[in-house]
Design a protein around this nucleic acid. Structure first.
Lengths: 253, 253
DNA sequence: ACTTGCAACTGGTCAAGACGAGTTGATGTG
DNA sequence: CACATCAACTCGTCTTGACCAGTTGCAAGT
C-alpha cells in the first residue's frame, strides 16, 4: 500500500518498494515480478501508476519488460575488459587489427562489416586531425560483431592525403590492419590518445547494438599520432556500457 | 499530425518529429517548446501521449522539463577534460591532490568534504587490493565541489595495515594528499591502473550530483600499485558524464 | 512607485477504461 | 499420441477527464 499523505508520488513509492525488494533479494535475478494487474491490487493504485513505476525501474536498468511474458529482474551482465595493450605494436603485427586481437584473446568469434567512403572534414574532425575544415578525409565505418551480436561501432577518419594509394581506402586493409598500412607508408605511429566519455545512445545505436533500456554507451575518441606529433587518424568508438569497461595503465613517473 | 496506419506508436512519432526539429535547429538550444496542451492540438493526440513523447526526449537528454515553466531544448554542456597527467608526481608534489590540482589548472574554486571510516573489505575490494575478504580497510569518502556544485564522488580504500599511524586516517591528509603520505611511509607508487565504465546513476547519485535526467555517470576504479606490484589503494570515482571526459595518452611502443 | 494577490499559464500526478498484440498452456480434435 | 486451436494470461498503447503544484505577469490595492 502507498502512503497518500507523504507527498511522495505514488509511482515513486511503488518503484522504491520494488527496488528495495529486488536489492534485498526478495525478487532474485531472472525472476518474474507480479504482473502489472497484480501490483495494481497489492498497492491499491491504478495501472498507469504501476506502469510508470515499472518504467522507472526499466530505465534504471533494474528490470527487463517482455511483452506478453512479464517483468523480470535483470541479471547482472558480464563486463569485458578492453585493455590498452590491445594497441601494442606486437598485437598490431600479429593480426588484423585491434578488435580482432581482443576477440581472439577473449576466445570468441568476431566479424566486422566495413564501409569506406570519403567526406569533407567537419569542424570536429578537422580539429582532431589538425587539418582545415573541408579537407577530404577517408572514412572507415565499421560494425563489429562478437559471436554474431553487434558489439561495437567505430568510425575512423584519416586525411585522404595520407591514405591515397594504400589499402586503407579498401574494405580489406590486409594483414595487420590500417595501422600496419600506415606504418608501411612511412607514417610510424608515435602515440595514441583516447578521450573517454559516456552518454545515452541514439535510437539508431539502440537498435544496432540491441541495447536494453537504461544502458548508456561509452564513447571513445582515439587519435593516433605520428612520432613528430602529426595526427594520422581519429576513431570514434561506441561501446555498450553494460558489456565493456576500458582499462588504462601507466607508470607513476 | 501522426500517421495512425504506420504501426509506429503515436508517442514515438511525436518524439521523432520534435527530435528532428530540434536537431534541425528549428527549436534552438534554450528555446521553449510549445506547451504540452499546444502539442496535443498540433499532433491530434491526447496529453498522456504527448507527455510520453516529451519524456522520451527528456531521458535522451535532449530537453529539460521545468515544472510551471515549460520544456526547453537543452543547450550542449561544456565538457571538461581530465587528463591522466593529473597524477604525475610533479602535480602530486605541488599541491593537495588530484582533484584540487585539476581545479587549479582549469581555474575554478574547489572544495571537498571528506569522511573517514574503517570497514571490512568486501569481495570486490579484497580482489583489487589483493587482501583476504574481511581485512580491515581505511575508507576515505569524498564529495568534491567545483564552484560550489558537487562535481565528483570518490571513495578510496586502502589496507589499514598501510595507513596506520599516517595522516591518511585523518580528514586532512596534509600537503600533497594521501599519495604523498604513502610515499613518505615508504610505499613509493609504481603505477596506476584505471578501469573506466559507465552506467545510469542511482537515485542517491542523481540528487547528490544534481544530474539532469538522462545523463549517465562515468565510473572509474583507479588502483595505485607499489613498484613491486603490491596494490596500495583503490579509488571508486563517479563523474557526471555530461561534464567530464577522461583523456589517456600512451606511446605506441 | 511599490507591493500584494489573483488569475492564467506551465508541467505533475492519477484514475478508469478500452482495445491491440505477444505468449503460454490447456483443451479438444485428428 | 501429435497437433491445431483457443482462451487466458501477459504487456503496449491511447483516450478522456480530473485535480494538484509551481511560475509568471498583470491588475488592483496601498
Amino acid at each position: 500500500m502507498v502512503d497518500r499523505t507523504s507527498g511522495v508520488p505514488a509511482f515513486r513509492q511503488v518503484a522504491a518498494d520494488l527496488r528495495a525488494k529486488i536489492s534485498a533479494g526478495q525478487y532474485a535475478p531472472g525472476v518474474r515480478l507480479p504482473s502489472e494487474r497484480e501490483l495494481v491490487d497489492t498497492y491499491g493504485v491504478s495501472r498507469p501508476t504501476v506502469r510508470e513505476a515499472v518504467n522507472l525501474l526499466r530505465l534504471e536498468g533494474v528490470v527487463d519488460v517482455e511483452h506478453g511474458r512479464g517483468v523480470f529482474v535483470r541479471p547482472p551482465s558480464n563486463i569485458h575488459r578492453l585493455a590498452r595493450s590491445r594497441l601494442s605494436r606486437e598485437a598490431r603485427e600479429r593480426n588484423q587489427g585491434a578488435f580482432l586481437a581482443e576477440a581472439a584473446a577473449q576466445g570468441f568469434t568476431a566479424s566486422s562489416n566495413v564501409k569506406v567512403r570519403f567526406e569533407q572534414a567537419d569542424a570536429r574532425a578537422a580539429g582532431y586531425l589538425a587539418v582545415d575544415p573541408g579537407t577530404e578525409v577517408t572514412v572507415r565505418d565499421r560494425v563489429m560483431r562478437a559471436n554474431g551480436l553487434v558489439a561495437q561501432l567505430a568510425v575512423s577518419r584519416l586525411p585522404r592525403s595520407i591514405t591515397r594509394d594504400t589499402a586503407i581506402e579498401k574494405v580489406d586493409t590486409g594483414p595487420g590492419g590500417a595501422y600496419a598500412r600506415l606504418e608501411e607508408a612511412g607514417h610510424v605511429i608515435g602515440s595514441f590518445v583516447e578521450h573517454v566519455g559516456a552518454r545515452m545512445p541514439t535510437p539508431d545505436e539502440m537498435t544496432l547494438l540491441q541495447l536494453p533500456d537504461g544502458v548508456p554507451v561509452v564513447a571513445v575518441t582515439r587519435v593516433a599520432y605520428r612520432a613528430d606529433g602529426v595526427p594520422l587518424e581519429m576513431n570514434d568508438i561506441v561501446l555498450p556500457a553494460n558489456l565493456y569497461e576500458l582499462s588504462y595503465e601507466w607508470p607513476a613517473d
